[in-house]
Design a protein around this nucleic acid. Structure first.
Lengths: 190, 190
DNA sequence: GTCTATAGGGGGATAGAC
DNA sequence: GTCTATCCCCCTATAGAC
């Protein structure tokens, strides 16, 4: 049982990593198995189909984000530091072997995903946007953020730019990614 | 010979469409062949390997962009209308069955692409960024654009957001994409 | 230029032994 | 829980006829 839990967790960890590295269609049970030192069939014991594995990966990601934003260490921060924390997630993702945003990776393959993964992807994106929007509203009300228009639209712009910048950085390097983050920060101050 | 040119062109058209729809690893020679009403091997006659097909698709895309921006109908426009034209490319892409930016699609699969396609992807992205940067500089100098910081960084932010927004729209719908475009436009006016 | 036929590999998934 | 063995499908690519 202990072994099972460890293996299951290791599969999820590796699957998440591969998903952000190669995309959903870019990794296989064989990849996970070989890197884990087990056989193909062992993965199928824990996740009968790839769709189930994918869904579990996204669900865990969503749960983790939910835990973070409701954790007092993030929840009680001033808006500006909240946003810095959010940006740092993406900076860490970039630093981790040039991975991309989980949501962005899935959206890119959206047209070939099974329905359950599309739903999970949409739910994740909605949660990211919702938190961003609220944080931006808070900051605007507190006078620490300055931007024109609807906080929902500004949230969509920031999230899009972060997802896009992680991808763009694969061709253009980390400097370009960091430039996008800094430009986003700077524009909120003016 | 006429037949050949038509087939070659039809392959490129369909390949480009599939690339923006399903990604490079998401379409096959069989897909192209069946939609074209020819056989697998016919595609290989025109493009011996998939890498050659991919490279030709990107090259043609780059050539087309180059033609456009040096066309007097775009070249002689005021900066604001130039940028509107650029945005309209992405809006058209979104309207075309929810396709995504060619560069964004390729960057997402960057880690599994052969070297020649990585180079092409990088070159395309550089050309998009370079044109955007110059156009933003022109507009700033002319007083029609207002933004803080380096035009190169602003160009990276805008391009990232457009690529990201096309992907985000797959999960969240066209409204969110249009919101990102409008937010970008609005922020340049303030 | 396009066809038929086929090689050779990788993918997801399952049955049954241990 | 993990293994071996295997099935079946799709993929890229090639050889040779027409």
């Amino acid at each position: 049982m202990v072994r099972s839990k460890n293996t299951r967790r290791a599969i999820l960890d590796l699957g998440e990593s591969l998903l952000q590295d190669q995309g959903f269609n870019g990794f296989s049970y064989a990849h996970i198995a070989s890197q884990l030192g087990v056989k193909n069939a062992a993965i199928h014991y824990h996740f009968p189909a790839k769709e189930a594995l994918g869904s579990a990966i996204i669900q865990r990601y969503r749960d983790r984000f939910d835990l973070w934003i409701n954790n007092s260490r993030v929840k009680d921060l001033p808006p500006q530091e909240k946003l810095d924390w959010f940006f740092s997630i993406y900076t860490t993702t970039r630093a981790d072997n040039g991975k991309v945003c989980l949501a962005g990776s899935l959206e890119n393959e959206f047209n070939s995903l099974p329905e359950s993964l599309r739903k999970q992807t949409k739910a994740l994106t909605e949660e990211l946007l919702a938190w961003l929007q609220v944080t931006l509203s808070e900051g605007k009300a507190a006078g620490s953020f300055h931007f024109a228009g609807d906080p929902a639209d500004k949230a969509a712009l920031i999230l899009s730019s972060l997802q896009g910048a992680l991808q763009l950085a694969r061709a253009m390097g980390t400097k370009k990614f960091l430039a996008v983050v800094e430009q986003n920060k700077q524009e909120l101050l003016v």
